[in-house]
Design a protein around this nucleic acid. Sequence first.
DNA 1: AAGTATCACAACCGCTTGCAT
DNA 2: AATGCAAGCGGTTGTGATACT
Length: 276
Amino acid sequence: MGRGPCCSKEGMNKGAWTAIEDELLVEYIKVHGEGKWSGIPKKSGLKRCGKSCRLRWLNYLRPDIKRGNMSPEEEDLIIRLHKLLGNRWSLIAGRIPGRTDNEIKNYWNTNFAKKAPARQTSSSEKNPIMITSPPSDLLPPNLQQQQFTNVWATPLQPELEFEALPPPMDQNFSKTTASEPQFTDNSPDIIMDLNPGEISVSEIFNDDFINFNDFEASEMRNIDNRCNTQVQEIAENWAASDCLDQAQYYMGSDFSPLAFLFESEGWVGDDDVNVV
DNA sequence: AAGTATCACAACCGCTTGCAT
DNA sequence: AATGCAAGCGGTTGTGATACT
């Protein structure tokens, strides 16, 4: 389709914002609130593109922005989240109060990008496993109405043919080699590709993470009776449990990137719900 | 002291997505 | 279903500050 510029560039200022421009924008947003960015230049008298106004507000002028150096805790969180999410800066920023996606992106590029050169895209990443539509009876009641589309996961041992693996416990919970890879970048080791509006990654990372955890626990129980433990126990011992190995063996995928989620105190917690 | 290289970060650009029509 | 617009996102660039030679 293509798109033209977000607004006329003629007569618009570019480059660094002045204190007066900042003031105008803050005053405007105080009165009118956020949103309708494209109309701001006309209404506020600012000679700035609406897009530029939005960026200035979100990255610099917003009152809840935390400035200054990253704390060790924030740095640790960024590393962990980047390992899981890759360059999804807005998602990462969503878990770090007071920090913007732009700030985190800059911080990463400055401090880590050079130290951790991009992984070569392996054949396994080009052909991730696709696990489709878990049977609804495996899901907790509150997720049984959800329409899962795909769950993409990177094979742990790409050289291992699926045929060599024992069949899945439930044939309906199939695994196939993806014919249409959905990601080509330095993706994290596991990616959820779920229908927007039904259950999203961001929802998982916020309100529904416990539910997601319930689902994983159900899977584990189905894989091996020895794993028939309480959901909370699995959550607490995820990394240590041989459920993880069982899952890796049957599903041929590396779920270890998720383990830290359960190891880290306060991950599900802070402002959300704590695992008891 | 001057010139150059490097760093850090604000801002821009182009693309994608979601929604209204 | 097709189209157009606004907003959001991630990659890239520009620039001032600082370090180095």
